[in-house]
Each structure stands twice: as structure tokens, then as C-alpha cells.
């Protein structure tokens, strides 16, 4: 079963760690050269779930629950985002 986790040598900080409120945002940077990427809204939500680690199904399920939607409504977006994050090297699969 493939699980997703944040790759090694990645620095990131989310808006919740900097100030309260506002749209969820995470700033993610491969070390040491970047470039930094901004993950906003639902993308940040998925990133925070990846930080916990999990399979595609687990992340979809949790994201859907947090968004108050059915897993089928968010699955495609989550999968595309995870594929992009893996391609960028900021998320690894194992």
C-alpha cells in the first residue's frame, strides 16, 4: 500500500504557526535552494494531512471530512495535487 509523507530536506511553515486566522496557507521549500511554493486553501489542508502521513484513501477521506464533502467530490483534486507534489520532490511515497 503506497503511503505519502513529506520528503527529506524540506522546510515548511504554515500560516497557523505564524499568525491566527485567514485562509490556510503553507510555504514549502526544498533545501537549500528552493524555490518556495505556496499552498493555499485546500492544497494547504492536503499538505497538513501529508505531514501526518497516510495512503491516498486515508488522505482523501480526512480531507473530505474536514471539508464537509463526500470523498468522491475531492478525490480527483487530492490525487492530482499529490502527484504534483511528488513530481516536485517535496512529497515522497513509500
Amino acid at each position: 500500500m503506497t503511503t505519502y509523507a513529506i520528503a527529506d530536506d524540506i522546510a515548511w511553515v504554515s500560516r497557523e504557526e505564524l499568525d491566527a486566522g485567514g485562509l490556510p496557507v503553507a510555504y514549502v521549500a526544498p533545501l537549500p535552494h528552493g524555490p518556495a511554493v505556496v499552498l493555499e486553501g485546500s492544497a494547504c489542508l492536503v499538505w497538513l494531512l501529508v505531514a501526518q502521513g497516510g495512503t491516498l484513501e486515508e488522505i482523501v477521506e480526512e480531507a473530505a471530512e474536514l471539508a464537509g464533502l463526500a470523498p468522491s467530490e475531492v478525490a480527483a483534486d487530492v490525487e492530482v495535487l499529490l502527484t504534483d507534489l511528488v513530481a516536485m520532490g517535496v512529497v515522497r511515497t513509500q
Binding site: G34, P35, G41, S42, A43, A67, G68, L69, V74
Partner: peptide, 25 residues
Amino acid sequence: MRGWHHVGMTAASHDPGEPASAKAV
């Protein structure tokens, strides 16, 4: 968070190698 928004991902650098669709922020 309630609701689902379009997945938002933008490059925050001015790296000339960044994807054309990425907006520098």
C-alpha cells in the same frame, strides 16, 4: 475548514525555470 476550493499552488520564487502556469508571489 468547510467547503472545497480549487487546489491552489503557486511558486513563490522568481526562478526562470518555474512552470509557466505558476504565478510569482
